[in-house]
Design a protein around this nucleic acid. Sequence first.
DNA 1: GTTGGCACTCTCGGTAGTGGAGTGCCAGTC
DNA 2: GACTGGCACTCCACTACCGAGAGTGCCAAC
Lengths: 338, 338
Amino acid sequence: MLDDRKLTILRAIVTDYVSMREPVGSRALVERYQLDVSPATVRNDMAVLEEEGYIMQPHTSAGRIPTDKGYRLFVDRLGTVKPLSGAERRAIETFMAGAVDIDDVVRRTVRLLAQITRQVAIVQYPILSSATIRHLEVVTLNPERGLLILVNSSGKVDQHPVDLGGAPEETVADLRGRLNAALVGLAPSQVVERAERLVEEFPDDARPLGAAVVAAILEMVTADPSTRVVVGGVPNLTRFSDQYETTVRPVLEALEEQVVLLRLLGEVAGTGDVTVRIGHENPYAPLRSTSVVASGYGTDDDIWANLGVVGPTRMDYPSTMAAVRAVARYVGRFLAEG
Amino acid sequence: MLDDRKLTILRAIVTDYVSMREPVGSRALVERYQLDVSPATVRNDMAVLEEEGYIMQPHTSAGRIPTDKGYRLFVDRLGTVKPLSGAERRAIETFMAGAVDIDDVVRRTVRLLAQITRQVAIVQYPILSSATIRHLEVVTLNPERGLLILVNSSGKVDQHPVDLGGAPEETVADLRGRLNAALVGLAPSQVVERAERLVEEFPDDARPLGAAVVAAILEMVTADPSTRVVVGGVPNLTRFSDQYETTVRPVLEALEEQVVLLRLLGEVAGTGDVTVRIGHENPYAPLRSTSVVASGYGTDDDIWANLGVVGPTRMDYPSTMAAVRAVARYVGRFLAEG
DNA sequence: GTTGGCACTCTCGGTAGTGGAGTGCCAGTC
DNA sequence: GACTGGCACTCCACTACCGAGAGTGCCAAC
């Protein structure tokens, strides 16, 4: 159905449209891509491509632009992998070099990704499923209010307020000791099991407080994955000032909603490789004229979280995909080592 | 120089332009504001106002629009305080009601402010100058790396990585004890004094590690004020799609830079009352066609941090100022109560 | 000081008209 | 059967032009 030349033409239309931002016609095509056939032939092929739904005309007597389906075919079969430039490689190295803690890593990653792809970058905080609890602390702020702090082996620190109900300091100290003794070294899944039995082991007078604290711990351990997403490169949206209604506004609105972002990244990625959602393929309706390029990141056997970029369907997929892949891999290695 | 009627006219021009978004002419003015004089008289007054630099014409034979100077006069002398609507009052109450910790308070505040003012809101994390250190913890992640955690009396948790250099667990435990004994209960300023002597009290073998940890503590305590700013309501920028180059882009870029935001809030506010920077008065050049309405928040004797909104110079100052003031006060009270 | 009148300026919307880009189709060629 | 040159056709983008409307500044009169 689609012979080689038609595919070549589709590829040419996509690349040309992406770089020129204008509908591309048969004449320009043969000139810029040395197709060795006449414009008329190209036109015949284009008619077929249009019939099949890969390209369309904004109006009669305009050139063609790719449809979502066209981009999809391009991404699946036609895109040649574009290696990163030296400058980009160096940028990745230097950007991450001085990172001190997890927050810093995430912050730097988002900046890096936004800078390389020149698009809006989204990075999810790593979910360290293999991380174990390293330390538990209950800090008394005042007789009524306390703070539960949880540190895991990757250096992530979570906090949660606890209602102490006026419990004496000894009770709190005892509780602290028991919690640490019981839970340190456990992975999240193990915590869930262990914690349930733990409450029963508390002395009677510490029972209510203990139950509250354990509940808080469970909440932190289980709710954690859905916590946080960081966004960067929003000013890059100004490059699409022509697509205000279809791109800029919806993206800004989506960025405000952590839940939406997680859905976007989560449903798109979830694997170790780069995934692309083009336009209407997107699970979130307002972004139907937007594409998401995402990837999981982490070690081979333990995917930790997702990251990606969002931009107009008319984007440079090969470069963007290469950048997302490279950053995901690098961050994965970086986290694994440190 | 400027008699009552001229001031009335200026006020009318500002309010009309803000609500209508169109240059306002003499005829419309007398009709909408019952000025009891003829358009010609108004024109004479407007000519004077223009000469004095309070208003200008986009082009001959258009109506007048206020200049920055005009807005300034309006804000200083002409703006009638616009009380919050019942709905807004209720919004403030309900928004903050279920806040659990500081992060949550800040997040809710930013949403609230963005929603009421329908502009981009910025909230700085509270600097609790009166807060004291409540607990210090050094958690060993692996023989080389540790994590210093600092909890203050307001429930704020800070963390900082520490290079343990393979120090044995007893040394770390000893250090932890000494740190807590020495520093708990101190305010930041006191920590600075005390910490310097503290290092000398360490046993020799803990000296290098101790010095590193103390350095980290000092860094956290002193660097803290400049830490974090949270932004919300960015989609509200889409309401100014006409001012892409002068408003939308610069604001997006500024929002990406925490430093800029802090400068903006800091230099603008710094007092307990609402401060307004109009257009060119702004310390940050790219926002010269933007206004910032900000306020410190906290208790009367202890200003904690700043919050505010940024929007086009053509904004509803009375409402915005009222909203910022109300939110600042409410959050201050909320934090003071615990 | 205020006002009505008036000529003037400038924007905005609508209407033609034109050039150009691109197409589809068809008949002819290899 | 695939490709090509030619040609008529369509539609957009741009320009020019015109008229209506809004608003002004100025002036003479009250």
